[in-house]
Design a protein around this nucleic acid. Structure first.
Lengths: 293, 293
DNA sequence: TCAAATCATTCGTTAAAAACGAAGCATCAC
DNA sequence: GTGATGCTTCGTTTTTAACGAATGATTTGA
């Protein structure tokens, strides 16, 4: 690394880009034009390429500049959100249950949880899909009550986060009708076949790779996505074979179960921020919910 | 705002928290302990609450500290990623097509696109689910080739981003068998009924609110999620009624179409970063793909 | 149990940067 | 052309960050 990215320079850059010029930005920030000009130049030197095209007396974002602005916006939005969260860290009672779910969690599992919650107490439930780290942030910030994950929590070493396994599901390979012959001599018959996979972010994908390597099976990844329902849809239309856990609620008519993958399991976890939960419904779910297929 | 968040202070905080102490962090950053101590204190004064609990000679993260660390990690990860992107902004030919999709886009639409892509040229396709701004960032950074959105691009005013409408789908309300009676005197019969909605981030949700308000219909939101397949699953199990566009591939056996919502449409867009696309498959899709139900 | 070591903090000083104001030099509007 | 606008350069001042030496508190281990 040449040197560290100066976030204050980046902040000025954002102001210049959004205000549409150094003069306007200087006025808004109540500092002088020369300062901004200088800092901008330093930032450009840092990243190694011009962020603006100096066309006559106007500043036009270059392509690199646009990319930079995208990142800057997100970075400072996060900073603002952080301050916001720290300010009113008052765990005010939410009107309803907020659940975060990874895209890679089988939808059937989420369905079960929602219905269990509704059974405990008729309440509104919001489900927020997202990436793992994003969801964890929101959990910490008390914006959501629970996370449903098929990963044993990246933050496992951290205290103050409690996870509980609610299911350990066997995984089978499914395919559309045209693949029915592969039932014979499964799993060897899978060799060389096209597959619809979860992305490599997921633990399941790694387990699958391991399984196929172990059994000397070569697979051809045709499509990959985090979203299990999309995987299912792709498989139903014959794009390729796909692995699903049992709970997925696969209609036998459209997808045929070719065989189970031995020793491959998908484990589902429920994660909360505290042992003691404000939200009563979340607390009950955490205590007693479990999924057996 | 009291004052601006100093991102350099935050950076030091991150180092202290991850290294587990001021001494270690000071050594790693090659600066003195007093400096870190001082900057940390300033940051704590800024946010208004202690980030560490000074227990004897050790620093333990407080709850606020953990939240702060979460945000700091994400912020600086983004900064690093930004530099990475700016460094090798070489549009190296991707081996396969990368598509970004909002969770709220009907899965059936994505399916059609994937199959169309596969028809153009047998290739591997990765689908990345995510939030709008995240996807746009990755589009700009050339990490993905196309975005499928049901929103006409927040960045519509920006040049250098091209979107094309590929479908305008009518929207109907569906429900499980027990709701079959609501077919009579639709849509008035929907009054007071439980609903599974898309989240209010989506344009569709706004359009629905408008429609119901216009027709004097009160709805009871039971669950809300961005994920259309999850909405479908919830609706199938009778949690509530749900609106879907026609393409969703709803099995008539499990969900009954109660009626179409007049003048409510879901429009689907294909978005690319440049008019001239490196990826040939993406280019062809952009030129000729269109969905008519 | 009593040094020695470790770690955070405080204080005064020095080094680096950020910010300023006055000019310069283009371009655009009239 | 002439004045206004907007970015840049230069030298100076002010603010901030970093340093080194020293303190106090706590743990290690001899």
């Amino acid at each position: 690394m040449t040197q560290w990215l100066n976030y204050h320079h980046l902040f000025y850059f954002q102001a210049i880009a959004t205000e549409g010029g150094i003069a306007r930005a200087a006025e808004k920030l109540r500092i002088g034009q020369p300062t901004l000009s200088s800092q901008l130049k330093q930032l450009e030197a840092m990243v190694g390429k011009p962020l603006f095209e100096r066309r006559n007396r106007k500043l036009l974002l270059t392509e690199a500049g646009r990319a930079t602005l995208d990142y800057a916006n997100e970075i400072f939005r996060l900073g603002d959100e952080m301050l916001e969260v720290l300010k009113d860290q008052t765990p005010e009672g939410q009107p309803h249950l907020q659940i975060g779910a990874l895209d890679s969690v089988p939808k059937g599992v989420i369905l079960s949880i929602v219905m269990a919650a509704y059974k405990i107490s008729p309440c509104a439930v919001s489900i927020l899909e997202g990436k793992g780290d994003e969801l964890f942030r929101e959990l910490r910030a008390h914006k959501i009550d629970l996370i449903v994950s098929n990963y044993p929590s990246q933050a496992l070493e951290e205290a103050q986060v409690f996870s509980k396994s609610i299911a350990k599901l066997p995984v089978s390979v499914y395919g559309s009708k045209k693949y029915v012959d592969l039932k014979r001599s499964f799993p060897k018959s899978l060799n060389g076949k096209p597959f619809v996979f979860p992305t490599s972010h997921s633990k399941l994908r790694h387990d699958l790779n391991h399984y196929f390597k172990l059994h000397g099976i070569q697979t051809v990844p045709i499509a990959e996505t985090q979203d299990t329902s999309l995987q299912k849809l792709l498989a139903e239309h014959g794009v390729g074979l796909a692995p699903f856990s049992e709970v997925e609620g696969v209609k036998e008519q459209s997808l045929i179960r070719l065989g189970q993958l031995e020793d491959v399991f998908e484990e589902i976890w429920l994660i909360s921020a505290h042992r003691k939960l404000e939200n009563q419904i979340a607390a009950k779910l955490m205590k007693s919910f479990s999924l057996r297929c």
